[in-house]
């Protein structure tokens, strides 16, 4: 899953998404919270009714919820300080490099005697922070570019979209690695930026596609016929109606960001401060002991897989529920 997808396949996927966006719901998503008087009338109401009974969505949402709650309370519930070498005395480099479970340390410790359970728990925090901020940054950058292209059209559109095409033609992980490697001092922020940069073109293309569809829609014409200013046409009439596919995409991007961030840390391009545990980095460290103590790799790997799966399941079922073509 974390291998770089061939670039052309990635582009195709984005194109397909943009296409569904162009013909797609075209909005009605934002009225979600405020109006719910007539269930079944609005897209969101019928989508919610489908989701509520969709076991895939419920599973994804449950995983996500557990993960977020754990990340938030992990410093409180972690049995030990994840950075403290509490079992360092038990580490014998030749005979017993990785201390096994013992009372108070249910999963044992790592190769420098830090409690594995605490590190896994607290590690969720980093994963959540990187995932959320990388998605937010990617969203911000992508929305800016997409709005530029969709609102102005013409040569601005061509210029922005060519840049996006170039970025999309580079395999996503390779792009993230390059950006992370450029940073002279790797930190959590460089990881976030590297992972976000990969998502910018995806969001830009998606938004631009649905903005173009909005541009020629009747209500935009009607707004223009009332003399509404260009800015208001773009921000009040075009953008809010183009966001539905972008919001759905965000949940999927969260999963990708988490995997990408883990991959960066695994390869040593992540946050060097290993007092702050991170799943990808734990996985990297575990390589040395993979034959004798596979559990050191298995636990963080499982965490990454389950969390990414949760977001993916939620995002996919959200997209299906909002796709008018799959509505019955």
């Amino acid at each position: 899953m974390s291998l770089p997808t061939p670039a052309n396949r990635r582009k195709e996927r984005v194109d397909a998404l943009a296409a569904t966006a162009a013909t797609g719901p075209g909005g009605a998503l934002l009225e979600a919270g405020s109006v719910d008087e007539k269930p079944g009338v609005s897209l969101i109401a019928s989508a919610w009714r489908r989701l509520r009974r969709d076991p895939v969505f419920l599973l994804g949402a449950a995983i996500t919820l557990v993960f977020v709650v754990l990340a938030l309370v992990s410093p409180l519930i972690a049995p030990h300080d994840p950075g403290a070498n509490l079992l360092i005395d038990k580490v014998r480099p030749q005979t017993n490099p990785v201390p096994g479970p013992e009372p108070g340390f249910p999963l044992g410790a790592d190769d420098v005697g830090r409690d594995l359970l605490s590190r896994l728990l607290v590690g969720s925090q980093q994963t959540l922070v990187v995932g959320v901020f990388a998605t937010l940054f990617g969203l911000t950058g992508g929305l800016t570019l997409g709005i530029l292209a969709g609102a102005f059209g013409g040569w601005v559109d061509s210029l922005v979209m060519r840049v996006v095409d170039v970025l999309l033609s580079i395999p996503s992980l390779l792009l993230a690695f390059s950006i992370a490697a450029i940073a002279s001092r790797p930190s959590q922020l460089t990881v976030i930026i590297a992972v976000a940069a990969v998502q910018v073109p995806v969001f830009a293309r998606l938004l631009r596609g649905s903005m173009l569809a909005q541009r020629h829609s009747d209500h935009v014409l009607a707004a223009r016929a009332l003399g509404v200013t260009r800015r208001a046409v773009v921000f009040r009439h075009m953008v809010p109606n183009s966001l539905a596919p972008v919001i759905v995409q965000s949940t999927l991007v969260l999963a990708v960001s988490i995997i990408d961030a883990a991959a960066l840390s695994f390869l040593g391009l992540g946050n060097p401060n290993d007092r702050q545990p991170e799943w990808g980095q734990m996985l990297g460290r575990a390589q040395t002991y993979i034959y004798d103590s596979p559990h050191l790799a298995v636990y963080p790997a499982l965490c990454i897989i389950v969390v990414a799966l949760g977001f993916t399941l939620m995002g996919e079922s959200l997209r299906e529920a909002l796709d008018p073509k799959s509505r019955r």
Partner: peptide, 16 residues
């Protein structure tokens, strides 16, 4: 000058 269009549903912004 103002204009009224053909399809009243699609001529109104659905999210406002």
């Amino acid at each position: 000058i103002a204009m009224i269009f053909q399809d009243p549903l699609s001529s109104l912004n659905p999210v406002i």
